[in-house]
């Protein structure tokens, strides 16, 4: 039986006393997998270990059954779009991608052809000979993506790939990710924004405080999240009038006023998000800002962790820290620590 593309067993990585990832056991197969977690959850550390940037402190990680650290076989089959915005600034995207593709064993001529083709794919053809330092954030993001996919890897790791991209660039990146997944490759996309990941896959892996706390179908997790009161912050020119309008709806659980606006807790965020612009338009209210403190997922993770503990406490079959499952959910909650 062929080894899974990605496999970890009790993988831990510490930075001195600080835990990066803790006791992670998982298998990732082909298709797109979303790696979701708030900032500092351990997503980047997990990616760094899986791409051979760091060694595991404990346990192990394998790609196609092989150890990762300093293994050319593994490195030839993976691509990473790192989170950091780091470049050789004076180079053009074409030189950058050519140089890095050349290091995969292609001749200079082959590498140039591949770089040109890849930069076309990421819509950078027109500016490909300009210095990277003149690029917008979105263009820089697509340059990073180009170097990651140029050698046609079997596994693609993307660390917050949509950061800073404009709507068109975002669509292009998402399409590319979907296309990679449909071609039978493994794509692991990290993000701290749930709806970003939802636009790419239904298969997600939730990570928090260095641990995988749940994995599986995003719809089930979304249901759990939607059952949890969702906070929406509204900065409008007539806050009291707007609060009055919102208060008449059943899903609204509470409304709080603060200096900048109102904080609305709702049981049905989808309906509430639709309603807010409609009510504003109908009643001639100007909405200056509409944000959600819950979008950073921290609250969701708190909720999931609490829900998991309740589940753990009521389920005698729960096997403990490594992984636990319930037939009620198509997601697997992993509890412990």
């Amino acid at each position: 039986m062929a080894a899974p593309p990605i496999e970890t067993r009790n993988l831990s990585r510490w930075y001195g006393q600080v835990i990066g990832v803790n006791d992670i056991t998982l298998e990732i197969t082909t298709g797109v997998t979303g790696l979701l977690g708030p900032n500092g959850a351990g997503k980047s550390t997990l990616m760094k270990v899986l791409t051979g940037q760091l060694k595991a402190s404990n346990g192990h990680a394998r790609i196609f059954g092989e150890k990762i650290w300093n293994n050319p076989y593994v490195l030839s089959r993976i691509g990473l779009c790192p989170e950091q915005d780091a470049f050789y600034e004076d180079m053009s995207a074409f030189q950058f991608v050519t140089y890095l593709t050349r290091l995969h064993g292609f001749t200079t001529h082959e590498a140039e052809k591949i770089a040109g083709r890849t930069l076309d794919i990421v819509d950078l053809a027109e500016r490909k000979h300009d210095p990277i330092r003149t690029y917008s954030k979105g263009m820089r993001q697509r340059t990073k993506l180009a170097q990651a996919i140029a050698h046609d890897p079997d596994i693609l790791f993307l660390d917050e790939p949509l950061t800073g991209t404009d709507p068109i660039g975002r669509r292009r990146v998402i399409d590319l990710i979907l296309e990679f997944g449909e071609r039978g490759k493994s794509v692991i996309v990290s993000s701290h924004v749930l709806h970003e990941v939802e636009s790419m896959t239904t298969n997600i892996l939730l990570i928090n405080k260095g641990r995988v706390i749940a994995d599986g179908d995003v719809f089930k997790i979304r249901e759990m999240i939607d059952g949890h009161p969702h906070l929406i912050f509204i900065d409008a020119d007539k806050p009291r009038e707007f609060a009055k309008l919102l208060a008449g709806h059943k899903d609204i659980m509470s409304i709080q006023f603060d200096e900048d606006g109102i904080r609305v807790a709702t049981k049905n965020p989808a309906a509430c998000y639709k309603r807010i612009p409609r009510l504003a338009l109908e009643n001639n209210i100007v909405v200056n800002r509409l944000t959600s403190p819950d979008n950073n997922l921290a609250a969701v993770f708190r909720y999931l962790t609490e829900a998991g503990h309740k589940q753990s406490a009521t389920s005698p079959k729960n096997p403990g820290p490594a992984s636990s499952s319930s037939s009620d959910w198509s997601v697997t909650l992993r509890l412990g620590g």
């Binding site: 062929a2 080894a3 196609f64 059954g65 076989y73 050349r102 064993g105 050698h151 079997d154 071609r183």
Partner: peptide
């Protein structure tokens, strides 16, 4: 797609040394 038997393309020590050397010379 077979993943276990895919041929690996790597660069030789000499070619790598040359590529890195030329790249950093140009920039340096």
């Amino acid at each position: 797609m077979s993943t276990a038997t895919k041929a690996v393309k790597t660069i030789s020590f000499g070619s790598l040394l040359t590529a890195i050397l030329l790249f950093h010379l140009r920039h340096g």
